[in-house]
Simulated assay, not measured.
Amino acid sequence: MVRELKFRYGLIFLAGVAAFGWGSTKVLDHWDRNKDPDRLAFILNIPQIPPSVRNLDCNANATTDVIVSCSFEIEPREYDKVLVGWQFTDKEALGKRTLYDLEADDGHVWLMGNKEGAVIAERYEE
């Protein structure tokens, strides 16, 4: 009876370790604020970031205002998905890069990317 209980608890423990190992990357990304996909979703004003986003690196520097910046890479075919959250008023071609710019009542949003899928996004709110 005791051996059977130890075996069951051992299996439960191993299943938990396997589940944590499989899903830990996404869980840990939410704990690591520099890789948190919610920060990027906040900047872009979208509910969820596109699945092909990778190499996400964010930071937030502010004392009284909100300033959040993220750099990331995305599959070029999904680039339009990062533009749907805002009605960008200005679009400017800068060589191989494109700059999208939006001034809002309470701040500013800009996004710069290239055709290879390297993107930098920033959101400022007063």
Rank of each mutant, 00 (worst) to 15 (best):
E73C: 02
G21E: 13
A118W: 08
I120Q: 12
R54K: 09
G21F: 03
R8P: 06
E4H: 08
R123I: 10
G113P: 04
P51R: 04
L11M: 12
N114T: 09
E116F: 12
F88G: 01
D105H: 08
S69Y: 05
K81F: 03
S52A: 06
R33E: 14
D36F: 00
F20D: 04
F72Q: 02
F88S: 01
A19W: 13
G21T: 08
L56G: 07
D105I: 07
P51C: 03
C70V: 02
A62P: 01
R97P: 04
I120Y: 14
V84P: 04
T98W: 09
F13Q: 08
T63F: 11
A104H: 11
L28S: 03
K35Q: 10
Q87G: 09
W22R: 11
L102F: 07
E4Y: 10
S24H: 13
L11N: 12
R77H: 13
P51Q: 08
T63N: 09
H108G: 03
E122I: 05
T63Y: 11
K6G: 13
W86S: 07
N61C: 08
T25D: 10
E125Q: 14
A15M: 13
Y9L: 15
G117L: 06
E116W: 09
A19E: 11
V109F: 10
C70Q: 09
T89F: 07
L102G: 03
P76Q: 12
S52Q: 05
I43M: 12
R3P: 10
A19T: 01
Y100V: 00
G95C: 14
A62F: 09
G10T: 03
I43N: 06
V119F: 03
D101N: 14
G10Y: 06
D106S: 13
D80N: 06
I49T: 00
K26R: 05
I46M: 02
F13W: 14
L11H: 08
E122Q: 11
C70P: 04
F7P: 10
W86I: 02
E103W: 01
I43G: 01
V17C: 09
G95I: 03
D32P: 01
E4A: 13
G95F: 15
H30A: 00
R77P: 04
N45S: 06
N34H: 13
T63E: 14
E4C: 02
E75W: 04
